[in-house]
Amino acid sequence: MKIVVSFKVVHDDQDIQVAGDGSLDFSKAHQVVSTYDLNAIEAAAQLAGATGASLVAISAGGAAIDDSKLRKNVLARGVDELFMTADDACADMDAFASAEALAALLEKVGDYDLVVCGDGSADNYAQQVDIQLAARLGLPVVTAVTKLALEGGVLEAQRTLEDVVETVRVATPAVVSVTPDAALPRIPGMKDIVSAGKKPAEVAGAGVVPTGTLEVLDCRAPQQADRARVIIDAAEEGALPRFAAALKAAL
């Protein structure tokens, strides 16, 4: 049995600089695994462990996502093998294009039983790639999953929706996306990282250029309300009564 986990590589938002005109400067930003996709990798690794399945990780993005530290970081999390499409034709893809690129990558992976996605990526949080991927593959999709099990070719998943918890069952192959509650990411140990370097990783360019369906007209940081920024240090004499008075005045 084979489980695939799909993770997105994004700029670390801690390092995004906002220029004077409000445009974003990513030049100092590292490439990182999108936060909640670490939870997806963990959920998939636990499922693979419980079922004896092998675990393959996939990702598609710009040429810069082919980073050896990043590859090791993923392979050190219970992943057996990695497939990536790293090509500037795959940078900044929309959901439709992402699904096209990932479907092409899955053809290389071959027979799989389950594709696990995260809850939403850190840049857009569109919660759409999982669904579009399933539509393209002609597979059922189960989103918002907080608990999952795989037995006898059937996936049973608990979905936490706005007002109800829904339990559903579906025969594999299928696509599933898990919320961060499904599993907390592990902290890989030294041994995991060393052995990660020896695991197979296939990185290639995009065979076809994925089709973009949206045009970005503008992208800039919003004007922030100018705040008064009166900061009081609690260690100062009379700090608390002063702070309490200012807080009361605002009520």
């Binding site: 705040r227 920024r229 009166v230 900061i231 009081i232 240090d233 609690a234 702070f243 200012a246 605002a250």
Partner: peptide, 9 residues
Amino acid sequence: KQCDLGLVG
């Protein structure tokens, strides 16, 4: 940097 009133403690 984003508040009106702050207390460090």
